[in-house]
Amino acid sequence: MNRLSLFALLFCTAVASDTRADDSLYTRIGGLPVLQKITSRLVDRSSTEPVTKRSFNKVNLDRVKEKLAEQFCVLAGGPCTYTGDDMKLVHQGLNISEREFYGLVEQLRQVLDSEGIGSREKNELLALLAPMKPQVVHQPTEP
């Protein structure tokens, strides 16, 4: 292999490595500005929708938006630090039902769709959030 071929191979490998390293969910979604927009729209919507609004009563919505954006950023592989409280502690006493939880999940899906987030990214984000269900739901399924 001559030097030019070796250089070309090394260059292509380096470019491919950089592309993969920057292929985080955070980057593919559009970074913190997009995550902040998504969480803001989600909280605004969830705090007014009949299925979910009860659990947002007497809650500082601006703080929820901020902490949720931090959490999404961390989960998506972004450079943020989550500075909020433990999920179980935050939701303790709110008596959130499975119906409310799944209502919020559906609202998140709709917000992600309306923001043009791709299926791959949407599914990855939802999969990262799903394990939090036991920390959020503190009430059995309603009949």
Rank of each mutant, 00 (worst) to 15 (best):
G77N: 01
L9D: 11
P134D: 07
Q36N: 13
A76K: 00
P33K: 07
G31H: 00
K88H: 12
Y82S: 09
K133Y: 02
K65F: 06
E66K: 08
V137N: 00
G93F: 10
M1N: 12
R41G: 04
Q110P: 06
E106H: 09
D85F: 04
L10P: 02
L4Q: 15
D18H: 15
E66D: 13
D44S: 12
F7H: 08
E121C: 09
T27F: 00
T13E: 07
V137Y: 03
V64D: 08
C73M: 08
D23E: 15
M87A: 14
D44W: 00
L6M: 12
C12Q: 11
V90Y: 06
T52F: 03
V111N: 02
K65T: 05
Q107H: 14
V90C: 06
E121I: 04
D85N: 09
T48K: 12
L25D: 05
L94R: 14
V15R: 03
G78A: 02
N123M: 13
E121W: 10
R54V: 03
E115P: 04
V90N: 05
V90R: 07
L108C: 06
L9M: 13
L75V: 07
Q107W: 01
V15N: 02
H138N: 12
C73P: 01
R41E: 13
E142W: 10
V59H: 11
C80T: 03
L4W: 13
L35G: 00
S114T: 13
A127I: 06
D22E: 14
L25R: 05
Q110L: 14
M1H: 10
V43Y: 04
D18I: 07
T48F: 06
R120E: 15
F56D: 01
K58A: 12
P79A: 06
V34D: 06
R54M: 06
A16V: 08
A21L: 14
A21C: 13
N2L: 02
S5C: 06
G93L: 09
D85G: 10
R20P: 02
V15I: 12
I117D: 00
L89R: 14
G93E: 11
E121D: 12
D113T: 08
G118C: 09
C80R: 04
L32N: 07
D23W: 15
